[in-house]
Design a protein around this nucleic acid. Structure first.
Lengths: 222, 222
DNA sequence: CAACCTGATGTTGTCGACAATATAGCAAAG
DNA sequence: CTTTGCTATATTGTCGACAACATCAGGTTG
């Protein structure tokens, strides 16, 4: 008997994942054109699967396509970042609210455990582990919302764009310990089943995060 | 010279629009299977364009697809409705906040004008016009946010699902005048450039709307 | 009789070829 | 010299055919 939740993986899936990875990590440059024929030879599949992959990338706002002209990787801009983080603030705020109301006690205990591990990692290692830990933290709260629409939008949609901004603008550095405190307070609110507070704290957390990135992106304002 | 903003419309576009319309309006039943060959003969196009249309519908969460099995129209359920409206509350709340900060004075004046027309319509006609007016009202505020991510998610994504629930559950009826008052207060907040209040009022407005639909969907609770 | 295997059938996934459209370069008129 | 129109080229949009897979019916074995 095979695992029932496991999906078969088609060539289009693989191409989609690979292309998304290449774009997010900057192997394929932001703003560059995506030629279907070129990509089909590059990934060793037919144009049809490349088209399907590009269509899916368009659905997550990672590429833009014009009829009869073609698809381009989105360009990273200050406005785009602000737009993205406003949506993120809104959706993840709601996720935190719902997580406070829908997560099981076990899941909340796990979340507290993650926070402890995280705390150790911050002391021992550098900021990269923080990055992974941060993603994990937000990921668990999103899943904790138990809202499938929310989960799909954030996990399959927005988060890869967020990662793209982070990777290509070289995020890391400070804000490690302060972000950790913010995480701790959010988990406290969730533990207390205080959705209202959890949402507020999550929104402020993401707002601060946005301001932090913006400061790096436009340093002439300092 | 032709209009620069006008996009060429491909067969895939037309098929996508038509199929979405048929699904939202119940011509194609919720939960039913979408056979690619069947649809290709029905709409007179090749399987490739049907596939592209289905892919786009999957991106807006109107159909679900399993590899090597096929696509099904989503089933309408109480849980799905709750999930959907929670996302809507979150995103449209943010839209109202941003609209208060980003709409021009002219746009706000237009919005007030719409409210007046709307007020007349409610007195003269029935609830159907209310439905159209309601959509128009929310639509303007969404656009007023000037946030392209938000606009795309709501207009191209969520709103067709909302319409699907409304149409197929036979929404209309009461809540006309109370909804109108809520609209009025939201516009007042936007006019005062009070984003905080606009968001709160919009969220409550959508929450009430959700409760109203839920009451119809599960009348055994009364 | 139940469980499993096997083959037939219809569906989706993938492919290469053709048609339609946009773009760049060149030629000609003003 | 600039601008307009045309042609050549390359890209995307669309199509029909084949391959891979899921599903169901019938037969076989324990």
């Amino acid at each position: 008997m095979q695992n029932l939740t496991e999906q078969p993986i088609t060539a289009a899936d693989k191409t989609f994942f690979q292309l998304r990875k290449d774009i997010v990590e900057g192997v394929v440059l932001a703003g560059s054109k995506l030629s279907e024929t070129e990509l089909s030879t590059k990934y060793g599949v037919s144009r049809a699967v490349v088209r399907e992959a590009i269509n899916r990338l368009e659905a997550c706002h990672i590429v833009e396509r014009k009829a009869n002209v073609g698809a381009r990787v989105v360009s990273l801009s200050a406005e785009g970042l602000v737009d993205l983080y406003q949506v993120r603030e809104s959706l993840e705020g709601m996720a935190a609210r719902l997580a406070a109301q829908n997560m099981t006690d076990d899941e909340i205990a796990d979340l507290n455990g993650l926070l402890n591990v995280h705390s150790q990692d911050v002391k021992n290692h550098g900021s990269y582990y923080q990055e992974a830990g941060d993603v994990d933290f937000h990921y668990r709260i999103i899943l904790g919302s138990k809202n499938n629409h929310l989960i799909a939008m954030l996990v399959n949609g927005i988060y890869h764009l967020v990662r793209m901004y982070r990777v290509q603008l070289g995020m890391s550095g400070p804000r490690v310990s302060t972000a950790f405190d913010e995480h701790k307070h959010i988990v406290q609110a969730i533990s207390n089943r205080d959705g209202e507070l959890a949402e507020m704290l999550m929104r402020r957390h993401i707002l601060y995060s946005k301001n932090n990135i913006q400061r790096k992106l436009a340093p002439e304002q300092g």
